[in-house]
Amino acid sequence: MQKITTCLWFDNQAEEAVNHYLSVFDGGSILDLQRYGASGPGPEGSVMVIRFEIAGQELLALNGGPAFTFSEAVSLSVDCATQEEVDELWARLTEGGEEGQCGWLKDKYGLSWQIVPRALPELLGGPDAEGAQRVMRAMMEMKKIDVARLEAAYKG
């Protein structure tokens, strides 16, 4: 078990959300599931906490009730090796959600994600400072990141 684990607070959709995330990312699994007992506060027998893994990252999903909701102040950032991976994850995670700027999106549960092609930080940190600034300007105009457009911007 990793030392620090992100806990995602859901009203009552933790199990549905975990199953969705497991369908989006290959090779994930449920590691543990705990249910509420007679002492509550959730209905007896309903899912309380699910510990799960996606893309090598352990997370917790908690059915904690409506007291808290997600905000963009915390997001899950996904490193994508290819444009195809960006395109697939963007499509799957925006289903029922909403697109944001610069590779950010909210899924149908309100959780914020950053879908980041590996080329983006490489171009932003490249040796051509002016090219990096052109990449930044190009990215600021995008929702889903387009690597070919970034590469063209870098080259000028």
Rank of each mutant, 00 (worst) to 15 (best):
P41Q: 12
E44D: 12
Q13C: 10
K155P: 05
L105T: 06
G65N: 03
S46R: 03
S39P: 02
A148C: 04
N19H: 14
K106E: 01
T82A: 03
E141R: 10
K143A: 07
D107L: 09
A17V: 03
D79S: 13
E130P: 00
F10T: 12
E122S: 07
A38F: 01
A61E: 07
E99P: 14
D87M: 07
L33Y: 00
G131D: 01
R118P: 01
W9Y: 15
Q57H: 13
T6K: 00
Y154T: 00
L89F: 11
K106I: 01
Q13V: 05
D11P: 01
Y154M: 06
G28A: 02
R134S: 03
A153S: 11
G126N: 10
K155V: 07
E99I: 06
L120T: 14
V24D: 10
E53Q: 15
Q13I: 02
Q34L: 13
M136E: 10
V86Y: 06
E99V: 10
N63F: 13
T6N: 00
M1G: 14
G37K: 00
I145V: 15
E44G: 00
S29I: 04
A55H: 07
E53S: 15
E151C: 01
E58I: 12
K106F: 07
P127C: 03
Q133Y: 04
A138I: 02
E98P: 01
K108F: 05
K106H: 09
G42M: 12
V49G: 03
L8Y: 05
F25Q: 14
P121V: 12
K106S: 10
M139V: 07
P121D: 06
L62A: 00
S29G: 09
Q34S: 15
A138K: 15
A91H: 10
K3L: 14
Q133M: 14
V74I: 14
E88W: 11
E53K: 14
V24H: 07
D32E: 14
P66F: 06
D107A: 05
E99F: 05
P121W: 08
I145E: 00
S71F: 10
D32Y: 02
R149F: 01
I30L: 06
L93Y: 07
L105F: 09
T94K: 02
L111N: 05
L59R: 06
A38V: 11
D146A: 11
L76V: 15
E141L: 11
W104D: 12
P41T: 00
E130S: 14
M140W: 04
L120H: 06
E130H: 11
G103P: 00
V135D: 08
A129D: 10
G64H: 04
A55Q: 04
G42R: 02
R51H: 10
G96H: 01
M48E: 02
A132C: 01
L120M: 14
Q101A: 11
V116W: 04
Y21T: 09
W90T: 05
R149I: 00
M1V: 13
E85M: 08
I50M: 09
L93W: 13
L93C: 01
G131K: 10
A132V: 04
L8W: 03
L31S: 02
F68C: 11
G56T: 13
G110T: 04
E53I: 04
I145Q: 01
R134D: 03
A138R: 10
V86M: 09
L93V: 07
G131H: 08
